[in-house]
Amino acid sequence: MNWLLVVVGAMAGAPLRYLTDRAVQSRHDSVFPWGTFVVNVVGCVVLGLLTGAAAAGAAGSRLQLLLGTGLCGALTTYSTFSYETLRLAQDGARSYAALNATASVAAGLGAAFAGVSLAGALW
C-alpha cells in the first residue's frame, strides 16, 4: 500500500503546483519564470524539513512516501525548470536563462539546507 501514499501525496502536489505557479506568475510582469522558481524552492524546504525530521526519528517512512515522494515529487518540477530556461535562452533572454539556472540551483540547495537545519532545531 506504499504506492497509495505516493498517489495521495501527488494528488495534492500536482494541483498545488499548478495553482501556485499561476498565482505567483500572474503577479509578475516579467519573462522570468517566478512560479516555477517558487514551487521548486518551497518543495526544497519541505523536503529538507522532512529529511531532517526523518534523521531525528520524528518522521517515518510512510510520511516520507506521502510528503517526500508524492507531494514534493508532484509539486516540484525539474522538467519545467529546464524547459523554461531553454525557452528563455532561445528567445534571446540569455541573462534571464542564466539567472534562472543559477538562482534555482542556489536557492533550492539553500532551502533544502535551511529545512534540514530547522528540523534539527525543532527535533
Rank of each mutant, 00 (worst) to 15 (best):
M1E: 13
M1P: 11
M1W: 11
N2W: 13
L5K: 08
L5H: 09
V6M: 04
V7C: 08
V7G: 03
V8Y: 06
V8F: 13
A10I: 04
A12G: 08
L16Q: 00
L16S: 13
L16A: 15
Y18G: 00
D21M: 10
R22A: 15
A23F: 14
A23S: 13
V24Q: 03
Q25D: 09
S26Y: 07
R27S: 08
H28G: 00
D29Y: 07
D29R: 14
D29I: 00
V31G: 10
W34N: 01
G35S: 09
V38N: 04
V38P: 02
V39H: 09
V39W: 12
V39M: 05
N40R: 03
N40L: 05
N40F: 11
G43C: 04
C44H: 02
C44G: 07
C44D: 11
V45L: 15
V46R: 05
G48D: 10
L49I: 05
L49E: 05
T51H: 12
T51S: 15
A55P: 05
A58Q: 11
G60D: 15
G60A: 11
L63W: 13
L66P: 06
L67R: 01
G70P: 05
G70R: 04
L71C: 02
C72P: 08
G73K: 11
G73V: 03
A74G: 15
Y78R: 00
Y78F: 15
S79W: 13
T80E: 08
T80P: 07
T80S: 12
F81S: 00
Y83F: 14
E84H: 05
L88K: 06
A89T: 08
G92W: 05
A93V: 07
R94Y: 08
R94G: 07
R94C: 10
Y96K: 03
Y96T: 07
Y96C: 08
Y96N: 12
A97M: 09
N100H: 12
A101L: 15
A103S: 13
V105Y: 07
A107V: 07
L109F: 15
L109Q: 03
G110Y: 02
A111M: 03
A112W: 03
A114D: 01
V116N: 01
S117V: 02
L118P: 02
G120S: 10
A121Y: 12
A121C: 08
